[in-house]
Amino acid sequence: MSGALAIFRRELLGLWVTPLAWVMLVVFLLIQGLSFYSIVVHVSGMTSASIDSGPVQAYFGQSIFLLVSLLLVCPALTMRVFAEERKSGTIEALLTAPVTPAGVVLGKYLATLATYLAMWAPTLLYILILRNTGQIDWRVVGSSYLGVISVGAGYLAVGTLMSAMTQSQLTAFVLTMLVIFGLFILGIGEYVFDAGMLRDLSAHVSVLSQMDEMAKGVVDLRRLVFDGSLVVFPLFVTVRVVDSWRWG
């Protein structure tokens, strides 16, 4: 695993030493800041609020900004991980080092996940700001962050897979976006389909419902299992894809 650790560190450096991560961070925080600002302005105008519709709940559970930022950030963070290495040929040096394909995939994926977490970290300030003016239910904050992390982790795994499928970063970006968008649309099906299997399926994968629930402090294990499978399955396929290049 020391190989995976080395790759993890190099990937982090590769992300943060180039402008990409910083640009993404700025865009991400701009969107989040806008979202938070509008929510605070909205909530401060309300005369009464139920326990379930505070600013934290709105920020994590009801804001479309959150989805938009995930739709941009996750594909951008992962698009280069394999596509660039294959295009520039550095993959040859990487895969002939004594590391397993699983080690390579894991190292790269965890680096994008760590970067994703780093992007969320400044939003903790919002919670601190709210705490100065009112009470914070830390369990709700915890489940909300658990939500964005587990949803993001799945999207990043999808992005890692897409990056391994093509040598073009742009293609990887678009493909990842399409999958994330597809999952989102499928989730919308919850409000479209009549009761039945399709609707159950839609409700199950709906990121909107998931974030709505988790922002209210409801942690449904089935949601986490789904997110977990959205991490494990794409990464497993990525390992197979990396292994298959040998036979190209």
Partner: peptide, 16 residues
Amino acid sequence: EMRVREYLGFRAAVKK
């Protein structure tokens, strides 16, 4: 994007 020493340090780590 890496410096020579950084790169070789990374390669040494990957090569155990």
